[in-house]
Amino acid sequence: MYIDDIIHVATEAGKIILENGGETYRVEQTITMICNSYGIPHTESFVTPTGIMVSITNSENKTISLVRRINSRTVNLRKVAMINNLSRQIVLKPLSMEEIRKELKYINNIPPYSINTTTFFAAVSSGFFTLVFGGNYKDFFVAFIIGALINYLGVHLDDLEVNGFLKNMLGGALAATVALLAAALGLVGNMNTIIIGSIMILVPGISITNAIRDTIAGDLVSGVSRSIEALFVAIAIAAGTSIIFKIWVLLFGGSLI
Rank of each mutant, 00 (worst) to 15 (best):
M191R: 14
E23L: 10
I16S: 10
E44L: 11
T24Q: 02
A239Q: 02
K102R: 12
G14Q: 08
A148G: 15
T11M: 09
E28W: 01
N116T: 07
L157F: 05
N210A: 12
V54T: 15
L185Y: 15
G189L: 08
D158P: 00
G21K: 04
I195W: 12
A122K: 07
F252P: 01
L187F: 15
S87Y: 05
V47T: 15
T57Y: 06
G135V: 02
N71D: 13
N76E: 05
V233Q: 06
T193L: 13
F140R: 03
T117G: 00
E23C: 07
V233D: 04
G254K: 04
L181K: 08
A239H: 04
A143H: 06
V54N: 11
M82Q: 14
V178Q: 01
G197F: 04
M200L: 14
S45E: 01
L77M: 12
K79W: 07
Y25H: 10
V124C: 06
L66A: 02
M169W: 01
M169N: 04
K79G: 13
L160P: 03
T32Y: 03
K62L: 07
V233F: 06
I235L: 15
N116C: 04
F120C: 12
S96G: 07
G253Q: 05
K79F: 11
P112W: 08
T11R: 08
N36R: 12
A234M: 00
G14Y: 04
P49H: 01
F245V: 07
F245L: 14
I52E: 04
T177G: 01
T63S: 12
I145P: 00
P41M: 05
T209G: 06
D5Q: 15
N136H: 08
S242N: 14
T30V: 08
R26S: 07
T117Y: 14
I3E: 09
N151V: 02
A143I: 08
L174G: 00
D159N: 13
I145E: 02
A179M: 09
G197K: 08
I34G: 04
T30C: 09
F252A: 03
L104R: 10
N190S: 13
I16N: 03
Y152P: 00
S198F: 00
G134A: 10
L66D: 02
L131C: 05
G147I: 10
A122W: 06
E23M: 03
D139H: 11
V178S: 03
Y38N: 07
G135S: 03
D219K: 15
G21A: 04
I56H: 03
T74Q: 10
G240Q: 08
L170G: 10
K105T: 06
K15V: 01
V67R: 08
H8S: 14
T117N: 02
T117C: 00
G254E: 06
I100T: 07
Q29M: 11
I194V: 09
N192A: 14
R26G: 03
S87W: 06
N71Y: 08
W248F: 14
K105H: 05
D139N: 13
S114K: 09
L92G: 01
V162Q: 00
S225G: 04
I7Y: 10
E23A: 14
T24I: 13
A234Y: 05
C35E: 02
V155E: 14
I237R: 03
I64W: 07
V249T: 13
N84K: 11
I237H: 00
V67S: 15
I110C: 09
F120W: 11
S114W: 13
G154N: 14
A13P: 03
V178A: 06
